[in-house]
């Protein structure tokens, strides 16, 4: 029965069965064991905690501190302005454009990648000749470096690039577009590139999840006369739930922080007009290129708060069952 445990973890292994609480007994032996346990916990976690505090918590604190200053990175910050930088950000139409673009990427990724990845994963989960090859091909874009993908699509989608040339020669000249120059189109072009890049990740996650769906259930369904579709709908999908939810979570956080492919594929002018900016590219453009370090830090804090709140809400309402005991409290 262990294989039917619905608490699937990230890449498919079954989680350990929950351990029942032992009744507390006070004896010298127990006390020594408790001491040893704490010694182990402290000894093993200290290095990680130090690194985490030094490189995550402390910098976050400093980012917030600097965000309260009007500071251009020359000399120590002295010009305290309170929350002015935050107000300025929400008054800048380009930042609002960046927020809109992030929303497009978050929901676009979920709505397009999810169904596509699920369909492909279900297909690739059947046995057929060349299955390994197809699995590999589906995953290749995800393995490529972001910058490589960005430059590749930038060249393919340029005015005289392969995509337009292909459309021309196929007699679809009417579809030729300024993919990266049309200010209304560019964010959708980028969404396509992002989808192409990351759908492989969703597929591999779902395939891992599928391998954990016990064959016995499928066989039982087959004996009951269920069709392939019915099996997928009533057995596979429900058991894939945890995997799908964790993918949604990762996809959402990744989309909120989208940076590298957009930075490389879309030129500075198009970004600065708001057509392709995201919160992260806006932060770098303003923090480093306009040398507004205090302001850039304020944008970084906003980006962090949005990601953090989104993560909390998602965990609270959707991931609750999957991570019970690990984050939300003790398992009963």
């Amino acid at each position: 029965m262990t294989a039917t445990n619905p608490h699937l973890d990230l890449v498919g292994g079954a989680t350990a069965p929950p351990t029942g609480r032992r009744p507390a007994r006070r004896s010298p032996y127990r006390a020594a064991e408790t001491r040893r346990k704490w010694f182990e916990i402290i000894g093993l976690t200290t290095p990680a905690v130090i690194v985490y505090v030094m490189f995550v918590l402390v910098p976050m604190g400093f980012a917030f501190y600097y965000s309260l200053f009007r500071w251009r990175g020359v000399g120590p910050p002295t010009d305290y302005v309170g929350f002015d930088n935050y107000v300025l950000a929400f008054q800048d139409p380009i930042f609002l454009d960046a927020l809109r673009n992030n929303a497009i990427i978050v929901f676009g990724s979920l709505l397009i990648q999810g169904p596509v990845a699920l369909g492909v994963a279900l297909l690739l989960n059947r046995t057929f000749r060349g299955r390994t090859l197809f699995r590999l091909l589906a995953f290749v874009p995800y393995v490529l470096a972001e910058v490589t993908v960005g430059i590749m699509w930038k060249l393919l989608l340029s005015d005289a690039g392969t995509v337009n040339a292909l459309l021309q020669s196929l007699g679809m000249g009417g579809l030729v577009q300024a993919w990266l120059a049309d200010l209304d189109l560019v964010i959708w072009t980028l969404l396509f590139v992002l989808t192409w890049k990351y759908v492989g990740f969703a597929i591999i996650l779902l395939l891992a999840g599928l391998s954990n769906v016990p064959q016995e259930l499928n066989e039982a369904a087959a004996i009951d006369g269920a069709s392939w579709w019915q099996t997928q709908r009533h057995i596979t999908l429900p058991l894939l739930g945890p995997t799908i939810r964790i993918w949604m979570f990762l996809s959402m956080i990744g989309s909120l922080q989208a940076f590298d492919i957009i930075w490389v594929t879309s030129v500075p002018a198009v970004r600065s007009l708001g057509a392709s900016a995201t919160m992260a590219t806006y932060m770098v453009d303003n923090g480093f290129f306009a040398r507004l370090w205090g302001y850039g830090n304020a944008v970084a804090v906003i980006l962090f708060v949005i990601s953090f709140v989104a993560a909390l809400i998602f965990q609270r309402f959707l991931l609750r069952r999957d991570i019970q005991g690990a984050v939300t409290g003790r398992a009963k």
């Binding site: 490189f55 910098p59 400093f62 980012a63 922080q257 940076f259 970084a300 990601s307």
Partner: peptide
């Protein structure tokens, strides 16, 4: 990731700022 990267460079800066002041 962008936040972390950004934040760690800020940390490096702040440490160095302190050193500079000292």
């Amino acid at each position: 990731m962008a936040i972390k990267r950004r934040a760690s460079s800020v940390l490096a800066l702040s440490i160095t700022t302190a050193l500079l002041v000292a």
